[in-house]
Design a protein around this nucleic acid. Sequence first.
DNA 1: CCAACTGTACTAAACATATAGTACAATAGG
DNA 2: CCTATTGTACTATATGTTTAGTACAGTTGG
Lengths: 134, 134
Amino acid sequence: MGNEPLLRFRLDRHSGLPVYRQLVDQVRQALRLGILHPGDQLPSVRDVVEQVAINPNTVHRAYRELEHQGLVEGQAGRGTFVRRSLPGLTKQHDALQRRLTAWLASAHAAGLDDEAIEAMVARAKESAEREERS
Amino acid sequence: MGNEPLLRFRLDRHSGLPVYRQLVDQVRQALRLGILHPGDQLPSVRDVVEQVAINPNTVHRAYRELEHQGLVEGQAGRGTFVRRSLPGLTKQHDALQRRLTAWLASAHAAGLDDEAIEAMVARAKESAEREERS
DNA sequence: CCAACTGTACTAAACATATAGTACAATAGG
DNA sequence: CCTATTGTACTATATGTTTAGTACAGTTGG
């Protein structure tokens, strides 16, 4: 059946991050953001292969890693399903999400590119760390 | 001489990013943030080795990559020096930096951990992309 | 039962990354 | 000139990542 997948993977070939790691991260993010819930089915190994043009072994490695973390469970013949969720973002955090999105829009409007924004985020995190040590 | 280095590298062993890539990124960030300027000297290969306990070859690879990008120049017997800068953050962007730092503080106060914050940033970026395509 | 789907297992090879160890050449300071 | 510093070059090795290819076993729907 032409069932729409809950999750679409996107690879960044320039990020330097291993592919299997990008897949793991994106599933964890989907759990955080409430896109995936316990019982939901992940895209099949072969679907992912078609979608992002990588080797089945790499997808399997990512799913195996997620299984090892207790987040999903693979069932031969059926698919891979979410087992538990992660401390997620509730409606209480909607305001935060909106503020951040607004900030990003301002940054783009100011002509900052992705790397410049990354630099700002990194600096902000450092400031936060310094704050915590006092 | 006990000269303080302009730049201190910090490695994240769990990030999945190759070490040499982390070094490259941090130098580029320092250029963006105005921490490094043309003519400035990078920490010597052997200094970095002592600081973060990695192999000299790895440091050299990072510096070679930066040289290939035209950002620095290695001079045998003297050191490695910044050649040009990158489109940086001027005082016009101070307001943006402050807003972001404030946002991060709010997020921490709301009990969000690093991964949850990463998820929020990722979602915000996706929203921004969707916006651009209209 | 059969066909089509699922996850899983395995070997082999290629490539990327990081290490260890040694050595050499250029520069600066005494 | 001598010495300590710098970047650079090279081989070899280990580990991690990805690919190719083949095969098998469980599940579902007709």
